[in-house]
Computed example of a mutant assay.
Amino acid sequence: MSKFQDLINSDQPVLIDFFATWCGPCQTLAPIIKDVKKNFGDDLKVLKVDIDKNQSLASKLQIKGVPTMILYQNGKQVWRQSGVVPASQLEAIIRDKTK
């Protein structure tokens, strides 16, 4: 868990995508997140967390469904949402929440 804290304790926004390999909406979201990361470049860190392989982290963060995205900045959760979000909306949310 300390490694997770190190990852989110950053001035750089960190978007975490909690997913499962068997989840259809997660597969829909994957290329959207890839495009968003490409558009933000080094201004955004993206981490993908497989909830089946990281059950303790998913449980600690109360991930109840997938996909769930959580945006962190400076170690604080600034946004969280479950489900698929269009790329343009996701980019606007990230810009708004990390000013």
Rank of each mutant, 00 (worst) to 15 (best):
L15K: 08
I16K: 03
I16C: 05
I16R: 01
I16E: 03
D17R: 06
D17Q: 02
D17G: 04
D17W: 00
F18W: 02
F18G: 01
F19I: 08
T21P: 02
T21H: 08
W22K: 01
G24V: 14
P25A: 12
P25E: 12
C26G: 09
C26L: 09
Q27S: 13
T28N: 13
T28W: 06
T28R: 14
L29Y: 08
L29F: 14
A30F: 13
A30W: 06
P31V: 13
P31T: 13
P31R: 13
P31N: 14
I32Q: 08
K34P: 00
D35S: 15
D35F: 01
K38V: 05
K38G: 10
N39I: 01
N39W: 00
N39P: 00
F40V: 04
F40G: 03
G41T: 12
D43N: 14
D43H: 11
L44N: 02
L44W: 02
K45E: 14
K45N: 13
V46A: 10
V46E: 12
K48R: 14
K48N: 14
D50E: 10
D50S: 09
D52R: 07
D52N: 10
K53T: 03
K53P: 01
K53M: 05
K53G: 05
N54R: 02
N54P: 01
N54D: 10
N54Y: 07
Q55M: 11
S56G: 00
L57E: 04
L57C: 07
L57R: 02
L57W: 03
L57N: 01
S59L: 07
S59M: 10
S59C: 01
S59W: 00
S59Y: 05
S59N: 10
K60G: 02
L61R: 02
L61P: 00
L61Y: 01
Q62K: 11
Q62R: 01
Q62M: 11
I63T: 05
I63S: 02
G65A: 15
G65K: 10
V66F: 06
V66S: 04
P67F: 13
T68K: 03
T68V: 11
T68Q: 09
M69K: 01
M69A: 00
I70W: 02
L71D: 04
Y72D: 12
Y72H: 10
Q73N: 06
Q73I: 12
N74L: 11
G75A: 10
G75E: 11
G75I: 11
K76V: 09
V78E: 11
V78K: 09
V78M: 10
W79Y: 15
W79N: 07
Q81M: 13
Q81R: 14
Q81N: 12
Q81I: 05
S82T: 08
V84S: 12
V84P: 09
V84C: 08
V84W: 07
V85F: 09
A87L: 06
S88Q: 15
Q89R: 13
L90P: 05
L90T: 09
L90N: 07
L90G: 12
L90E: 07
L90W: 12
E91S: 15
A92W: 04
I93L: 12
I93M: 13
I94P: 06
R95V: 06
D96E: 15
D96A: 15
D96L: 11
D96C: 00
K97D: 08
K97E: 14
T98L: 07
T98C: 13
K99G: 10
